[in-house]
Design a protein around this nucleic acid. Structure first.
Length: 424
RNA sequence: GGAGAGAUACCCAAGUUGGCUGAAGGGGCGGGUUUGCUAAACCUGUAGUAGGGGGUUACCCCUAGCGAGGGUUCGAAUCCCUCUCUCUCCGCCA
């Protein structure tokens, strides 16, 4: 959420920045609502001041055994007027708040203007794209032949975009989760968290999924709980409505979760294989920093995710998202894209974002810069470290051999009971 | 799921015949006095916040706020309704 005072003081500049995302954004309706809201508020508060004063006078008169009937009658009128103003203000405020909560974050000045992923800026590449001396197979074929992926039965039991992983496939999935968490806790200073996989609407609002993106979430109406689309939601909301101790910053937490996404609007995209599922596994990294250090911390964060890809020996590239591809809450996002032979291109496997104070303001996550000073909003960042299902895809396809076997990266072999090859 | 108890400031905790209580009293923390230092004693300060207005940008004023949201009333921590959470007992259960 953008600071509403920033908008009031600098509407032209804020609008200009937001129009880099979408030229159609106009703050005019918002400014009108804000103006209206303040007018009503001022009159309402003036009347409340009168009410408070006269109520005291009534109390005093009664205490002395006097009659206050006249004043009470007068106050009945004032009370009615206050009620009317309150009602009117509530209506205006609702629209005002809705507008404010549906405005995206202001993109960082270095985010390139663009409309699609074609406009993203390629920053660096790592590793060699594999040259196969044979016709490489897509992961769904490899998985079926090796009996480690069962997509048809996923469809039977749950529906399309669900999968069973079997045998060494299931083991690989589990090995990756353990490797990711072990590495981030041992080498990058993260505290491991195992979060709830369902979250309430306050939490979903805090990280920015609600109110605007409800259609992307799975929801349990009876309990009023949402299935989390990423561990970012519970991990960030750990400190919702709290003031963090400055000496504890940066706070770095990482956690595994299953992620649930309805993929509304993705019909027909990535229908083969397991690139795009309703349920997938991910290890998420979340940082809480002071506003002064969040941009340095983003560089650290993305390097932590890159390190995992390097250890797995997977070829990838780092891109800076353009304004059109930038998430709603993001001020700046690096995507890490891994080479996927069956797609013939790099595919997103990690997204590392600085949300500045956008989520912190929604979730009321603050820190006190120094003792006695006013608490201010912290900055939140997160990054995938990494998406597990897509890592499985990348390993299967990049490390396949002519016989359709999968060679396990060295760092994972201990996690696979010493296994070096699947299908060997 | 059934029955009961509770939620007041950083913590503990009074306050429910509605009205100088925006909140007694402790503890903690900040400042001070006595003191060679520490301890102790004594004095003193201590809502944070959100919203709005003013401003000489030092600050000042107002409104809200006693778990949350509604309601009754001239006036609500106090009365009524709904919800959330915590604790105890029973039931069920990985």
């Amino acid at each position: 959420m953008i600071d509403h005072r920033l908008i009031r003081e600098n509407p032209g500049e804020v609008e200009k920045q937001l129009q880099r995302r979408d030229p159609g954004i106009s703050l005019q309706p918002y400014l009108e609502l804000d103006h209206k809201r303040r007018n009503i508020l001022q009159e309402e508060e003036r009347l409340k001041q009168v009410r408070n004063k006269v109520s005291q006078e009534i109390a005093e008169a009664k205490r002395q055994g006097g009659d206050a009937q006249e004043k009470i009658l007068e106050m009945q009128k004032i009370a009615g007027k206050i009620k009317e103003l309150e009602e009117e203000r509530r209506g205006v405020e609702k629209a005002w708040h809705k507008f404010l909560t549906e405005l995206p974050n202001i993109p960082h000045e270095e985010v390139p203007v663009g409309t699609t992923e074609e406009d993203n800026k390629i920053i660096s590449s790592w590793g060699e794209i594999p040259e196969f001396s044979f016709e490489p197979r897509p992961h769904w074929e490899l998985g079926e032949n090796l009996d480690i992926l069962d997509i048809p039965r996923g469809g039977k039991v749950a529906g399309s975009r669900f999968v069973f992983m079997k045998g060494d496939g299931a083991l690989l999935e589990r090995a990756l989760i353990n490797f990711f968490i072990d590495y981030h806790t041992a080498h990058h200073g993260y505290q491991e968290i195992f979060p709830p996989f369902l979250a309430n609407s306050d939490s979903m609002f805090g990280t920015g999924q609600l109110p605007k993106f409800a259609q992307d979430l799975f929801y349990c109406p009876e309990e009023e709980l949402y299935l989390i689309p990423t561990a970012e939601v519970p991990l960030t909301n750990i400190f919702r409505e709290e003031v963090l101790k400055n000496e504890d910053l940066p706070i770095k937490v990482c956690g595994y979760s299953a992620c649930f996404r309805s993929e509304a609007g993705a019909h027909g995209r990535d229908t083969r294989g397991i690139i795009r599922q309703h349920q997938f596994n991910k290890v998420e990294l979340v940082n809480f920093t002071s506003p002064k250090t969040s941009w340095e911390q983003l560089e650290v964060l993305v390097s932590e995710a890159e390190k995992i890809l390097q250890l797995l020996e997977l070829p990838y590239r780092k891109v800076g998202l353009c304004t059109g591809d930038l998430g709603f809450a993001s001020a700046f996002t690096y995507d890490l894209e891994v080479w996927v032979p069956s797609s013939g291109k790099y595919r997103e496997i990690s997204s590392c974002t600085n949300f500045t104070d956008f989520q912190a303001r929604r979730a009321q996550i603050r820190h006190r810069p120094a003792p006695g000073e006013k608490a201010e909003y912290a900055h939140t960042l997160n990054g995938s470290g990494l998406a597990v299902g897509r890592t499985v895809v990348a390993i299967m396809e990049n490390f396949q051999d002519q016989e359709g076997r999968i060679h396990i990266p060295r760092v994972l072999q201990d996690y696979m009971g010493g296994k070096k090859v699947i299908g060997g």
